[in-house]
C-alpha cells in the first residue's frame, strides 16, 4: 500500500474506532434504561447494578413467564389475573381486556401497567413475547409421544 493510501486508511480507522468507543460507552452507561421491561426479580429485589427498586404507583413494564395453573379468568367480564415468574421471584398481574393470540400458560409475556401494593401490577396492555423456536405440529406430537414413552419406561423401571 502506498503511503497516501495508508494515511487515509489510518485516518478512517481512527475516526471509526473513536466513534464506536463513544457509542459503546453511551450504550453501556444507558444499558439498564434500554431494557424494555423489569423482571420479577428486579421488581422485588431492585435493579442489578443500582439496586433501585420501582416505587408503588410507578408505571412500568414487567416481563417474564406466565406460571402454569396461575391464570384466573372472571366468568362475568374480561378481568384476568396471572402470575409472572423468572428464575427467582414471581409477581401477580391483573388485566382487563383481550389477551393476544399467543398468550398461554408457560408463555413469555410483557405487560405494561402500574405497580400496586403486594407486588401486583395492574396492567393496561399485555403483549405476548414469542421465542425463537418454530416447531411443526407433527414434530411436537412426535416429541410428546417420545416423552410419554420415556416417562412410561421410567415408571415401569
Amino acid at each position: 500500500m502506498n503511503p497516501r493510501r495508508k494515511k487515509r486508511l489510518t485516518i478512517i480507522s481512527i475516526i471509526f474506532v473513536g466513534f464506536a468507543a463513544v457509542v459503546g460507552l453511551v450504550l453501556y452507561s444507558l444499558s439498564q434504561n434500554i431494557n424494555l421491561f423489569y423482571t420479577p426479580h428486579e421488581i422485588i429485589g431492585g435493579k442489578e447494578d443500582t439496586g433501585l427498586k420501582p416505587v408503588i404507583g410507578q408505571r412500568l413494564r414487567i416481563g417474564g413467564m406466565v406460571k402454569e395453573g396461575s391464570l384466573v379468568k372472571n366468568s362475568q367480564n374480561l378481568e384476568v389475573s396471572f402470575v409472572v415468574f423468572d428464575a427467582t421471584h414471581e409477581v401477580t398481574v391483573t388485566y382487563e381486556g383481550l389477551l393476544p393470540d399467543l398468550f398461554r400458560e408457560g408463555q413469555g409475556i410483557v405487560a405494561n401497567g402500574v405497580l400496586a401494593e403486594g407486588n401486583v401490577i395492574a396492567a393496561t396492555e399485555v403483549l405476548a413475547k414469542h421465542d425463537e423456536n418454530y416447531v411443526a405440529p407433527e414434530i411436537a406430537d412426535a416429541m410428546k409421544k417420545q416423552h410419554q414413552k420415556a416417562e412410561k419406561a421410567k415408571a415401569a423401571y
Binding site: I12, F16, A20, L27, N35, V110, K129, H130, E132, Y134
Partner: peptide, 26 residues
C-alpha cells in the same frame, strides 16, 4: 455510511444485550 456501521452489531446483538420484546435469532 462508515459511521453508521457501528449500528449493525447493535442491531444484531440488541436482543442478547438487553431484554426486548423481539425474540432472539433463530
Amino acid at each position: 455510511t462508515l459511521v453508521g456501521v457501528v449500528n449493525i452489531p447493535i442491531i444484531k446483538y440488541s436482543v442478547e444485550w438487553w431484554n426486548t420484546l423481539h425474540q432472539t435469532a433463530t
